[in-house]
Simulated scan of single mutants.
Amino acid sequence: MEFREDIGQYVFEYEGLIFAWDEEPEEDIQDTVKTLANNYFKHLDGIIDFMLPDIKKIYGQVTVEDVKRNLGRPIVDYDNGKVTYCEQLFDDCHIFEFEFMDDAFEKLQYFSIDG
């Protein structure tokens, strides 16, 4: 776990995902991180299906595979229930973000493309 000045949060990287907290977690977060990472990858197609209609509005006819290739590393903000893609490759000026309501990434809401 380290504090990253660029995002102003404590981060822990695991399996290509960045997990972030506003305050340094007091408890051991290894099990939580492993569960979240497994669930994220298990439900990635569903996550992309959730985002795809809005992505298509901006970037045209893209496929699930296009989105997988271009999302970049997600930042999972566990405290706030948000996943942010600051490194997406569709363009160099937008940030993708959605909220998750459960640790299984089955209940998603409020996808946005900001920039």
Rank of each mutant, 00 (worst) to 15 (best):
F3Y: 15
I113P: 01
G81W: 04
K82M: 13
I75K: 03
V83P: 03
Y40T: 05
T32F: 00
F3P: 01
G81E: 04
E13I: 14
K68L: 00
Y85G: 04
R4N: 10
M1C: 03
A20H: 13
T32M: 11
Y110C: 05
H94L: 04
Y110L: 07
E65S: 13
M51R: 08
D22H: 12
F12H: 12
D77S: 09
F105V: 03
E27Y: 11
I47W: 06
G72W: 02
K82A: 08
G60S: 06
E23Y: 09
Y78S: 07
G46R: 13
C86K: 14
S112I: 10
F50E: 02
Q9H: 13
I47F: 03
Y59H: 10
G46T: 00
C86Y: 11
L36N: 08
D114G: 02
D22I: 02
K34E: 13
I95M: 05
V11W: 01
I58D: 01
I18W: 02
F105I: 02
G16I: 12
V67S: 07
E106Y: 04
D77C: 01
E15D: 15
M101D: 11
I58K: 15
Y10A: 04
G72T: 02
L44D: 01
K82R: 15
F105H: 07
E2V: 11
Q88Y: 05
D49R: 14
G8V: 08
W21E: 08
F19M: 10
